[in-house]
Amino acid sequence: MGNSVKHHPSLSLLEQFCDGSLTPEVALLVATHLDFCPHCQRLSKDIEADLACSFAAAPVAAGQDDWLSMMQQVLAEAETTAKPVTPSTDPVVTNLEVGGHQFELPRALQRLSSKRSKWLTLGGIATARLPSGEPHHISLLFIDKNTAVPQHTHKGLEMTLVLAGEMVDEQGRYVPGDLIINTPDDTHTPRNVSDDPCLCLSVLSAPLQFKQGMTRLLNPLQRFFY
């Protein structure tokens, strides 16, 4: 599954993922990429070890802090907390059905997928938002076989991760695990030219703008894609 992944996050994106400084939506996209990509899994373990090494070796000045009393508080709190690990009450969903197709979900999306919004369908395309805040929106995007997303540009950043099936645009061909990043300068037409449906995870920082002919009529519908 991981061998064919060719489009990876940059090292700096991985570093920000590892130190926890990415926005939750972008972090979720990177985490999902890792579920597909042994190479980046190993890199991120290395980065964590490196960050932890500087953290642990950092010299600290002797301060006024009363660590002994904090430790006693922690131990007292541990006594009163019955179960150390509270199991999550959210259902874990390993499969997703859309457009009459079943998709297997990667680990990172299994809990969250039960919290998605309703599917909005437009032709062969459907989208459902996952819980997210500002400034990024994160959605599942279904593209049926032989279907194109109308050509568009972005006011902001668009990040797409292929979860199942395959997709092409002006730059290349993408398979599950591949990460595609488009900046405001890029114009592209993602298409599914295969005979199988395609499922993607999409992070947007601003609505899409459609460029060509009749598709400009879609601009009032841009919230659909956001």
Binding site: G20, P38, H39, R107, A108, P131, G133
Partner: peptide, 25 residues
């Protein structure tokens, strides 16, 4: 930010349970 239902650390960082992979690259 009162985003209790939102993306959590557990979703992002698996407890190191990726299968071990040899990488010769």
């Amino acid at each position: 930010q009162s985003r209790k239902d939102d993306i959590s650390a557990d979703d992002l960082w698996s407890d190191g349970d990726y299968p071990e992979q040899e990488d010769l690259q």
